[in-house]
Design a protein around this nucleic acid. Structure first.
Length: 842
RNA sequence: GCGGGUGUGGCGGAAUGGUAGACGCCGGGGACUUAAAAUCCCCUGUCCUUUGGACGUGUGGGUUCGAGUCCCACCACCCGCACCA
């Protein structure tokens, strides 16, 4: 048996079946063991599992299996984030119903996941597109509404004037609709919002408790929430009205040289009715989409109105009032004071419209007359050209101006948040119907909970652009739950981020009559380890945090943070292969299976001529650098694929896929398998060094898995396997081989089971206990000491562990190499770090 | 534009401020074999006047006995920016 090769094509399926039959990975909430909830971000069922999913779920799987071996009751579930635009696109392009398309995708993707041998509790599987999920979501949405956390307001969307439909940001390409090619406009619609801003302070403060989240994610969320302290004050406008503005830099108020309002500011709207040019400019501002990146990279444009604003601190100083495309109605008051010297955007605007650019902050008071060079200086410094503020530092000046405004009554200090309320309305079919009706008599009324779920109609057509729910002949017509009269259903559906804001609760318990069972939820939540892509650092994670806090405020759960520990993994990348067409200069990409690598270069199989190897980038259809998990599993087996996902690259960084890399992994799987033939229960005798190495590896692999440093765990296992191969037979070697099988069990579980059985075990290694370590074996007796001179390594010596400084210094000076380097120079100082190094300074 | 991150041999990477390049891949040489595959062994940062030495962690400065690691400035790339999920 042992001289044959390990055959994944038979072993993988056999062990997957054995785990299933033993219900090995079913989470028992009644268990007395400590509980661990390991969760990976659930996938969108796009059709095929992507190699990025494989990486994500392999990491979670290793942790889940490891935790089980360490005696934990593990909840490791899987589900489907099943609503979304691609299903509607498929309906439009292929004429297939979104539900059919989605459910078929789920079936094939589930089969793919099963082939990877993940330790998942499939009994808890859920799909957000099923009424038994989204119906409970509708109930929660009504709960939030009744708690005052849901409201409606006008808000801008991307409007395609040809298709007469709302476009997602993704569907706007270079300012044009992706299908019609028409120039996109901004249009206002009445939409549903969740009051996430009510939670801004606690979402910010809560970040401090998330000490097992990556620092960068907390920082990004902090900046996104964007708490700022500034001054809100009113300008007197030449038409007799007041204009409220907000500024985070009131210290620079003496440098103000203009005032600007958003295109949809009431003042601008009022002007439009009497000033045709102003109206034309406002119309122009409506062009283009709604994304922040577009707005901020667009050319700064303004329209100079006839109005002026009196500077609050400088007598007879009238500032011109502009309507500007870069001022947002959503932030602050929709109006700003422009200080070109110390804000880059204002600087560019001032250059363009020939406005005064005055320095009011410098490195010292001597800077007063130093002109501003190429751009604004937004940093810290000392106030100049600012009357009574001269000489103050920025922070003092801020406090001074706010204090004066409050005393004199023309403004007040105010905390403003960058975070905006969460718009959850989507004018689309394939999403959770918003459970409300519009009644002429009673207004907006929630659907009675006893009438939930409000289900999507199946008979819809996608041949016409726009929301099929609006066109449906009967679906939206209903009775008002309050007065019983005729009423119309809300046709907007919920943002899919709502679906993913509470699925982790539904995994913990799935009662039919309510969203979750609080007692079951209390047993498992918060999620001990959450793993997913860094691209979700802000939106998904912030919305899930908000939703959890909202439910806590409603008393439905008693914790406020859903994910105790978060890990964000890197992408899987692949090199690209291309040729440039000689005539057109266009780049044509080739798929990995169309080419053959030869040393440094590559050739196209079709014609045998070389092709160029491009940069290593994220796998994408357009670059054709995608590898399909099914193909590689069939070729190398699940364990080799899993091992590759864990090897080499640190998990938070990108992992470049390579043919030679996976081949190396497949070779290592066989290398571990060959240890079965070396396993000799009769072997006697000690091998103290190997025993120490084994103990050290058990300790290190456990520690690195817990820290999610899988690449280091992999390297340690390579080292131990190498050491075993070199060692002679002994009882310690036999033990080391058994230990290896247990240590690789979380990573290459199929091989581990096969080997475990082959050496005579009748139970599953997946259910085995992690090996114990004899602490005494972790202590080294001697250490290697580095000896430096002039900052360079000159020699190394072996010394007993814990040797004194004096002894180490003496040993270092006795070295011939060191003496040669010293060459008789006078020793000025010797630095000795015990167990580490000796550094001689001359 | 704004916010966040990353940068070390041919490649992926390792390294509590203390021996830079562990481990893996690629490449070269050898063993076994009729041959191949598989497997095993050795070499493998660059340069030089080669039992030795110099240089070397994106670039330029700085702190330190000592910097991949800390500080400042810059460059390149990646992620996010509220309707992709």
């Amino acid at each position: 048996m042992s001289d044959t090769r390990f055959d994944p094509s038979s072993a993988d399926g056999r062990w997957q079946k054995a785990w299933d039959e033993a219900e090995c990975f079913r989470a028992d909430s009644g268990s007395e063991k400590p509980k661990s909830y390991v969760l990976e971000m659930f996938p969108y069922p796009s059709g095929r599992i992507h190699i990025g999913h494989v990486r994500n779920y392999t990491m979670g799987d290793v942790l889940a299996r490891y935790k089980k071996m360490r005696g934990h009751e593990v909840l490791h579930p899987m589900g489907w984030d099943a609503f979304g635009m691609p299903a509607e696109n498929a309906a439009m392009e292929k004429g297939v119903h979104p539900g059919k398309w989605t459910r078929e995708n789920i079936e094939s993707m589930k089969a793919q996941l099963k082939r990877l041998g993940f330790a998942l509790d499939w009994s808890r599987e859920l799909a957000t597109c099923e009424p038994d999920y989204y119906g409970h979501e509708q109930a929660l949405f009504i709960d939030l509404y009744e708690a005052g956390l849901v409201y409606r307001k006008e808000s801008e969307v991307n409007w395609d004037p040809v298709d007469m439909t709302v476009l997602a940001n993704e569907q706007v390409i270079d300012g044009k609709g992706w299908r019609s090619g028409a120039e996109v406009e901004k249009r206002k619609l009445n939409q549903w919002f969740l009051k996430i801003t009510d939670f801004a302070p606690e979402l910010l403060e809560g970040l401090e408790s998330l000490d097992k989240w990556p620092e960068k994610v907390r920082l990004m969320q902090e900046n996104w929430i964007g708490k700022s302290r500034g001054l809100q004050f009113a300008f007197d406008i030449s038409n007799g009205e007041k204009l409220e503005v907000y500024s985070t830099r009131p210290d620079t108020i003496y440098g103000a040289s203009f005032v600007a309002v958003a295109a949809d500011h009431p003042i601008a709207q009022a002007l439009a009715s009497e000033d045709a040019e102003a109206a034309a400019f406002i119309e122009k501002c409506k062009r283009g989409g709604t994304t922040a990146a577009d707005l901020e990279t667009a050319e700064k444009l303004g329209y100079r109105t006839q109005l002026t604003a009196q500077h609050p601190l400088i007598e007879d100083c009238e500032l011109p009032l502009f309507i500007a495309n870069f001022v947002l109605m959503d932030y602050g008051t929709g109006a700003v004071m422009g200080v070109p010297g110390h804000d880059q955007r204002d600087f560019e605007f001032a250059k363009k419209y020939h406005l005064r650019i005055q320095r009011v902050v410098g490195t010292s008071t001597a800077d007063a007359d130093r002109p501003l060079g190429a751009g604004a200086e937004p940093g810290e410094g000392v106030l100049v050209n600012s009357g009574p503020l001269d000489g103050m530092d920025v922070d003092t000046a801020k406090r001074e101006v706010i204090g004066r405004a409050e005393k004199e009554g023309w403004g007040e200090g105010k905390t403003v948040w960058r975070l905006r309320d969460w718009g959850v309305s989507r004018q689309r079919y394939w999403g959770t119907p918003i459970p409300f009706v519009h009644c002429e008599k009673c207004g907006v009324v929630p659907v009675a909970k006893s009438d939930l779920p409000v289900t999507l109609p199946d008979d819809v057509d996608f041949q016409t652009p726009g929301n099929p729910l609006v066109r449906h002949p009967t679906w939206k017509h209903t009775q008002c739950p309050k007065c019983g009269g005729e009423a119309v259903r809300e046709t907007d559906t919920l943002d899919t981020f709502v679906d993913s804001s509470w699925y982790f609760l539904r995994f913990a318990s799935q009662p039919g009559d309510r969203p979750f069972d609080p007692e079951e939820v209390a047993k498992w939540l918060p999620v001990e380890q959450y793993i997913g892509g860094i691209e979700h650092a802000i939106l998904h994670l912030l919305y899930a945090r908000f939703w959890t806090r909202a439910l806590a405020r409603l008393g439905q759960i008693d914790f406020t943070e859903p994910f105790a520990s978060l890990f964000t993994q890197g992408m899987v990348t692949h090199e690209t292969y291309y040729r440039r067409e000689p005539e057109t200069g266009r780049v044509v990409y080739f798929a990995p299976d169309e080419i053959e690598r030869n040393g440094q270069g590559a050739i196209l199989k079709d014609d045998g001529f070389p092709i160029s190897i491009g940069r290593v980038v994220k796998m994408s259809k357009s670059k054709r650098n995608v590898v399909d998990p099914d193909t590689i599993i069939a070729q190398y087996g699940a364990d080799a694929v899993r091992w590759f996902m864990l090897s080499d690259s640190p998990p938070e960084r990108d992992l470049p896929w390579s043919e030679s890399g996976i081949e190396g992994c497949a070779r290592f799987v066989q290398r571990v398998w060959r240890l079965v033939g070396e396993h000799d229960p009769q072997a006697t005798g000690e091998d103290a060094e190997l025993a120490r190495k084994t103990a050290r590896t058990v300790h290190d692999v456990g520690e690195t898995i817990e820290a999610l440093h899988f690449n280091k765990a992999v390297a340690k296992l390579y080292e131990l396997v190498g050491a075993i191969e070199k060692a002679d037979a002994s009882a310690d070697r036999t033990n080391a081989i058994e230990t290896v099988f247990m240590l690789v069990a979380p990573m290459m579980p199929h091989l581990a089971e096969e080997a475990w059985a082959a050496i005579g075990n009748t139970s599953l290694v997946a259910a085995a206990a992690w090996p114990e370590v004899d602490e005494a074996l972790l202590q080294d007796e001697s250490v290697t000491i580095a000896v430096q001179h002039k900052g360079k390594l000159r020699d190394t010596l072996t010394a007993p562990k814990g040797a004194s400084k004096e002894v180490l210094e003496e040993m270092a000076l006795a070295s011939e190499k060191v003496q040669r380097s010293l060459d008789g120079a006078e020793i000025r100082k010797v630095i000795v770090v015990p167990d580490r190094l000796v550094n001689i300074v001359t």
